[in-house]
Design a binder for these strands. Structure first.
Length: 204
DNA sequence: GCGACGATCTCA
DNA sequence: GAGATCGTCGCC
């Protein structure tokens, strides 16, 4: 694959206005950037999971229809869905599909490519650079995101969070497998990751 | 109003 | 392998 270490063209809303199952593998290698008052952190995605729409995916937060928590998922694509998990962690998704489908892609693992120092200060417990964003809650922490970012339009003008073209993965570099940590629809091979990357959360 | 459980992480 | 720790949602 071609390795580019800086973010390329910014992804437009149309990129996300497709089924999550199509968007998810296309996001591998892409760069997620967050600029805050603290500075800029950019990561390159190495692992994602797709969550299909309401009624189609029992493992999705949107499965039983809109609730206050999952409301953002039912809105237009390219918005951030950030939720609180296990009483202590934040996890970030990007809403996909046309408005109302309530599908999304969970960001599970990434490599820090910009703002290493700031990333390390946000996760002092990290074992090493590969551990900084290996796992959805770690990735969210390193980017400096939390519930305050829920609903953010990443395709909008002036958004602090943007996603860009990064490294282009060859189809043979992409692996698929079952999603992690869910009990229903566990057989769906809707987890995608880049082969051989040390920042993939649970290796297979 | 109540209770079960979770798209997890860390440390032992 | 267990504990931390609490919001969300379904059901009573």
């Amino acid at each position: 694959m071609v390795r580019v270490r800086s973010p390329g063209r910014r992804l437009a809303r149309s990129f996300f206005a497709r089924p999550a199952l199509d968007v998810a593998p296309d996001l591998l290698g892409c760069m997620v950037r967050h600029r805050s008052v603290d500075g800029v952190v950019t990561v390159r995605l190495t692992e994602v999971e797709a969550y299909a729409g309401a009624g189609e995916d029992p493992a999705s937060h949107a499965h039983r229809g809109p609730t206050p928590r999952s409301a953002v998922m039912f809105g237009p694509p390219a918005h951030l869905y950030v939720y609180f998990s296990y009483g202590m962690h934040w996890c970030a998704n990007v809403v996909c599909g046309p408005k109302g489908t309530a599908s999304a892609v969970l960001l599970r693992g990434a490599e820090v490519v910009e703002g290493l120092e700031l990333a390390q200060s946000r996760r002092p417990q990290a074992r090493g650079v590969a551990d900084l964003a290996r796992g959805p809650a770690k990735l969210t922490t390193v980017l400096g995101l939390d519930g305050g970012s829920d609903g953010l339009d990443i395709a909008g003008r002036g958004s602090p969070v943007t996603i860009h073209v990064g490294t282009v993965a060859a189809p043979t570099d992409i692996r698929t497998g079952p999603r992690v940590g869910i009990s229903s629809a566990a057989e769906a091979m809707w987890r995608f990751w880049l082969d051989g990357e040390p920042t993939v959360s649970s290796l297979r």
